[in-house]
Design a protein around this nucleic acid. Structure first.
Length: 295
DNA sequence: ATGGCTGTTATCCG
DNA sequence: CCGGATAACAGCCA
């Protein structure tokens, strides 16, 4: 369940371990992940390339590579996405290749591995997905943006729009619910009915909730003793997928807590479906919007 | 055991 | 153009 915070934590983990390394024996085993780039072309770029930079944009992970034999300063960018089930980690080169490995290479004495059982992810040279992304919630100037203007005067529920990457980058299904709870805004509130105060509060809560999640995730050890997640540390720190509390440092406020007591007022958390996605909220802390015509 | 649910996003419709 | 539905897929849980 990688959303912005998980991807941010992963990138902070990978950056110092990858930058400066030279890629050997790269293999891209799934052409759907690489589409529309032919896997052979991608492997050609990877082999012998030096990793110059690893960064996050929205939920995308960008690898800037200096291909073998090319001048210093000329880089090629690989755009990757974890989809719903993607994982990236390093393992000893003599470890068995995990199931569902879609990309792997050797660097130094370790192997970089990208696994994705559901194969909703990407690993490609095609940068189209980067063209229409909204502002980054963790950028300093995000706190100056006019969120009401960004969301627009749409009748669409605010929860659905929060998850629209062309409006704001990086908010997925889990954090959309979490953010609206902290902002005390009902998820089905139409964007056009948001008050100015709600717009300001929502912007501040987006930042606050995502920053907090990054901070929680930053304490995790992503070096897995056996070379594979689940054998030691953890990558996903959501409520699903965690085998124990120690593997789930994050306690969601509302997500996946239907029927459980609100941590603020003890009302039962409710689940509703917006645009075919589960949405969780507290009916008391997040009252439905008053009909704007009634006053 | 079967079927319904799941993190994302691109693409298809009306 | 907008918004809703669907598809891509495997695993997990009831």
């Amino acid at each position: 369940m990688p959303e912005l915070p998980e991807v941010e934590v992963l990138v902070r983990h990978l950056h110092p371990r990858l930058v400066g390394e030279v890629i050997r024996s790269a293999s891209v085993t799934d052409r759907r992940m690489a589409r529309p780039t032919p896997p052979a072309r991608l492997m050609g770029f990877l082999n012998g390339a030096r990793i110059i930079h690893v960064q996050r944009r929205a939920k995308f992970i960008l690898f800037d590579l200096q291909p073998a034999g090319s001048a210093v300063g000329s880089t090629t960018r690989v755009i990757s996405h974890l989809g719903m089930t993607g994982r990236m980690f390093l393992q000893p080169v003599d470890s068995p290749l995990p199931r569902h490995t879609v990309v792997h290479w050797e660097q130094g004495d370790r192997r970089f591995v990208f696994t994705d059982p559901r194969r909703f992810g990407r690993f490609t040279l095609d940068d189209d997905s980067l063209q229409n992304l909204g502002p980054e919630p963790l950028d300093p100037d995000f706190m100056d943006c006019d969120l009401q203007a960004i969301l627009g005067r749409s009748r669409q529920p605010v929860k659905v729009r929060l998850m629209d990457p062309t409006r704001i980058a990086g908010i997925g299904n889990i954090y959309a619910s979490e953010i609206l709870f902290v902002a005390r805004i009902h998820p089905s509130t139409r964007c056009c009915d948001l008050t100015q105060a709600q717009g300001l509060r929502l912007r501040d809560c987006i930042r606050k909730v995502l920053e907090e999640a990054v901070r929680l995730g930053s304490g995790l050890d992503l070096d897995f003793p056996g070379g594979e997640p689940g054998t030691g540390g953890v990558f996903y720190y959501g409520s699903r997928g965690a085998k124990s509390d120690s593997e789930a440092p994050e306690h969601f406020r509302v997500y996946d807590r239907e029927g459980e007591p609100c941590r603020v007022c003890e009302s039962r958390i409710r689940r509703e479906v917006e645009a075919a996605r589960s949405t969780f909220f507290c009916p008391r802390c997040q009252p439905p919007p008053r009909n704007p015509n009634s006053t």
